[in-house]
Design a protein around this nucleic acid. Sequence first.
DNA 1: GCCAACGTTGGC
DNA 2: GCCAACGTTGGC
Length: 155
Amino acid sequence: MAISYWLMKSEPSAFSIEDLKNSEGKTTYWNGVRNYQARNFLRDEIKKGDKVLFYHSNAEPTAAVGVCEVVKSGYPDYTAFDPESKYFDPKSTPDNPTWYMVDIKLKSVFKKAVTLEQMRMNSKLKEMKLLQRGNRLSVLPVTKEEFDTILKMGE
DNA sequence: GCCAACGTTGGC
DNA sequence: GCCAACGTTGGC
C-alpha cells in the first residue's frame, strides 16, 4: 500500500522539534488531539511508514522544520483516561475511546526551516490545505508533490 | 495582545 | 434542530 503524507502542528513552546530530537529514540506519541476531523485521520488514515512534516505553529517563524515517520498507527490516546492529565476527557473510556494518537520518529531536521511565507510564495503549494483560510486542524493531509516540494525547500 | 475563523455547548 | 454564546486556534 502506498504511503501517505501528513503535516502535524505543534507549538514549540509546548513541544518543539528539538524536544523530539532529545526524546528517547527520537520518538514520541502525538497525543492531545481533541478535534474529530483530526481524530479520524489519526484513527483511520495514518499508517505506519507514512511521512510527516513537523510544523511549528504560534512560533517565530511559523514553519515546517523537519520530517518524521509514523512508527505506530492509531491507538487510543490514554491521556484522555487520566483525570490528572490536562488532556483528560471523561467521555472517552478504555472500552470506547473517543481520541486516538500515533507514534512518530524524527527522521531529519531541515537545514533551513520552510516558513509559512515561503510556502505561500511557492505556486506549487497554492492548493495546500495548510494555506487555506481558517484551517485550524492540527493534523492535515499533504500530497506527495507538496511534501517533496517542501523537502527541497528545506535542503 | 488582537482578532478572524470555526468548533462546541446548551437553552429553547 | 436551530442558533447565540463561548472557547480555542493560530497568524499577525
